[in-house]
Nucleic acid binder design. Structure first.
Lengths: 152, 152
DNA sequence: CTGACTGCAAAAGGTTTGCAAAAAG
DNA sequence: CTTTTTGCAAACCTTTTGCAGTCAG
């Protein structure tokens, strides 16, 4: 598997960084690749992925790289559970997360379902939702059928 | 201000605890009252509120009380930002949060806006949203008008 | 060269846990 | 009297920060 050409945002990732005055570094490229490889990843998970290619990279570098990559619009994150945020690449189709509180499973679905709600909130409240950030908690089909209860 | 009769859930709060085998303690009552007084509160903030009435209460007690109160259905929490969760009492009208990433302000609105979306997700994906848990990120009217950018 | 970036280690938040003493039922 | 609950202190986990050395431009 070619570690370079993973997503379409990779095409101009360096230009994007450059444009905003940031430098191109191997670490930043590795983090971006890691985000695109694991389509969802916590900082910890991204570190593991990055370290498969470059063992010496430090966790704080992951955090700082993600901050920069997010600032230039190459990645986003959302808070799915109680724990760590999940980062994903911006070139994926915008999606939202359905996190099951009973089994912990997380499903990604298209963000299209939010369209009319987003429009309504924009109109009524003047509030502009960051759609890529959205995640819903609840119970998935399987857990409802099995009568599994429980939060978290 | 009467510290006892704040919300309607206070009516049978002790019965609720009792029913599930938990004991009635001043700390638990104080925490429940604090949640109803500050309609939104992080554990830290709830501690401060509780300590206005009983200085000796410990933060870990707040956490443990919230866990129990949540288990018996007297309070819920939602994760608004990056930081601490926010607890609110269940007897309030179910509401969701609109958190502005630019100014940090959080607005509560009725959860009614989610009705049709919730129904659709239930039908299409079999996923049952925990509505009280929902919060949206984005930009509020003020910040949009002032062209204020920025995440977090 | 010079400033931005990295690794490391320490600090900072937020939450959890073990334990002995205190309180509830 | 028995069992739960509390307060305290320490442990834990994730994220942030200060700093000196390194690297990109």
């Amino acid at each position: 598997m070619d570690p370079i050409a993973v997503g379409m945002s990779m095409a101009d990732w360096d230009r994007r960084l450059h444009a905003q005055g940031y430098r191109i570094t191997p670490q930043r490229q590795l983090v971006l690749q890691a985000v695109e490889t694991l389509r969802h990843g916590s900082p910890e998970e991204l570190l593991a992925e990055v370290q498969r290619h470059a063992a010496g990279v430090n966790l704080s570098t992951i955090y700082r790289a993600l901050e920069v990559l997010e600032k230039v619009g190459l990645v986003t994150h959302s808070h799915i559970g109680h724990g760590a945020p999940t980062y994903h690449s911006v070139d994926d189709e915008t999606h939202i997360h359905l996190a099951c509180d009973a089994c912990g499973n997380v499903e990604s679905i298209s963000a299209d379902v939010l369209e009319s709600l987003a429009r309504a909130l924009r109109a009524d409240k003047g509030f502009d939702i960051d759609v890529s950030h959205v995640s819903f908690h609840g119970r998935c089909r399987k857990c409802i059928e099995q009568g599994r209860a429980g939060k978290h």
